[in-house]
């Protein structure tokens, strides 16, 4: 007899060896929370937006507005914030739409494609956030550089001590750049870990399926 036939026979023999789940237990399960990855993507993205919103509300005290005024950022920054929130709401809407589009009765491949579409949206979201962070850094730095009295004092004392102002600019910009890169890098790493862990298995399975169905 074929080895695989033995396996099939055994498989069928054991068909009724499972501990049966009662109707009552099934009812209980219907009201438990799902832990599907799609739901996780949705939950994490909403949590993230809430987190950043809370942070920005908590830090916006009088000092903050005064600083904005000194940097001449008090008109441009609220506009950027408004645009930013509009874009974020758009992303949340897309996440939700993707979430609704995902249907467990699709074929395995179609389901994976729908979820990977969600992943694409997540990726755009990540890129958008990183670009925004980098842009904000550069903006705040440049305005600080132009208007912060402390920077001007520093430059003055530097030149008085016989320093070259070119060297000064170079150092300041090098520091700005490194700080911006490190900051963006850390956020990038965070996203990679978060969504990487979440989607690694799905991605591997999708690759496997594509390999079969070339």
């Amino acid at each position: 007899m074929d080895e695989l036939e033995i396996l099939k026979r055994d498989w069928k023999n054991k068909e009724h060896s499972f501990k049966r789940i009662s109707e009552k237990e099934i009812y209980a399960m219907l009201h438990k929370r799902s832990s599907s990855i799609v739901k996780w993507i949705l939950v994490i993205s909403i949590a993230e937006v809430l987190f950043w919103t809370t942070i920005s509300i908590l830090t916006a005290d009088d000092d903050y507005f005064k600083t904005l005024k000194t940097y001449h950022l008090n008109t441009i920054l609220p506009i950027i914030s408004a645009v930013n929130y509009a874009v974020l709401i758009g992303f949340i809407y897309l996440f939700y739409k993707n979430y609704r589009m995902i249907n467990a009765i699709d074929t395995v491949k179609q389901l994976m494609i729908s979820i990977l579409k969600t992943r694409k949206t997540v990726q755009y979201y990540v890129w958008y956030n990183l670009a925004m962070v980098f842009f904000s850094f550069i903006l705040v730095f440049s305005f600080q550089f132009m208007y912060d009295p402390k920077i001007n004092e520093l430059l003055d004392s530097f030149s008085q001590n016989g320093g070259n102002s070119k060297t000064f600019y170079f150092f300041i910009f090098a520091i700005y750049f490194v700080v911006a890169i490190v900051f963006v890098g850390l956020i990038w790493l965070f996203y990679r870990l978060l969504y990487g862990i979440l989607l690694k298995r799905l991605y591997n399975n999708y690759k496997e399926l594509k390999k079969i169905d070339l």
């Binding site: 996780w40 467990a104 009765i105 389901l111």
Partner: peptide, 18 residues
């Protein structure tokens, strides 16, 4: 037929191992 499909979809794609 339907249960096969949803079951496999869940096991392969949707389910997050704890």
């Amino acid at each position: 037929t339907w249960a096969y499909r949803v079951g496999l979809n869940t096991a392969i794609t949707l389910y997050r191992k704890k």
